[in-house]
Design a protein around this nucleic acid. Sequence first.
DNA 1: GTAAATTTAAACACTTTCCCTTAACCCATC
DNA 2: GATGGGTTAAGGGAAAGTGTTTAAATTTAC
Lengths: 134, 134
Amino acid sequence: MKQGLLTDRQKEVLRYRKKGLTQQQIAEIIHTSKANVCTIEKAALENISRARETLEFLYTLDAVHLCTLKSGLDLLKAPEYIYTEAEKQGLKVKYDTISLINRLRDANPERFRGRQVREDVEIYINKDGDLYFG
Amino acid sequence: MKQGLLTDRQKEVLRYRKKGLTQQQIAEIIHTSKANVCTIEKAALENISRARETLEFLYTLDAVHLCTLKSGLDLLKAPEYIYTEAEKQGLKVKYDTISLINRLRDANPERFRGRQVREDVEIYINKDGDLYFG
DNA sequence: GTAAATTTAAACACTTTCCCTTAACCCATC
DNA sequence: GATGGGTTAAGGGAAAGTGTTTAAATTTAC
């Protein structure tokens, strides 16, 4: 009946790291090699990613692929495109134009540069008109 | 580089479950016993909990250890204790007595039996007076 | 109350993770 | 070039997780 994904060792390292200690310093404190500290920290971050991905999956459970925003697309043209695709499936998007643009950018800021889509964004929709991105 | 926490088997079961199938029906579809479907589903839900707890931990990273609820403590005496400790650190807890007790029990139900603390619970607090448990 | 659905326990092979060591490599800066 | 911080690779032993079966127990529904 484990608690989280992170082991005690991993949490320990993350806490010291948060305080600004170097891997070498931590290694001395917990009596091991700096290589080991590096490995432990890496594993911890890996586990955190996996935790995020796991919860992401839950959204796709009741969502359906709607469309793809292709790289290069003007962000301002995305809402109309999305509305059209949703209508084809008889679904009503939950967000108005402004909210939708904000939600797109907030969800993954690194995928947009100014008004342009930098890399393909997959759009998923559920019955409530909620949107998810992958 | 594993993706999420959930195995393919677990995702498969969750998807069928979402569609409303019984464990028996799923067992027939994926050619195994219903007991096994149960185990797999349970493991999947367990993994989802663990994913949530893992991300919870991140909050405690910029939180500070406030105190420890020792095993055997009366749950109803916890709030006053916590308020006192917070005051010592010049922090104001975000929750009133009732909310605090509910939050404690909701956060990890398995650590409380009736009014009693079953095993030590570490209390963390951040600058906003938010509480986290570890 | 009976049948169906779900849960639990124990045991088993198999795979994976975890922590650790050693040794090497990258990349700044001095 | 040396120093400090970080990363990577290979390997080993202990521990934990996964899927499975079988069998029993418990909850839910009609």
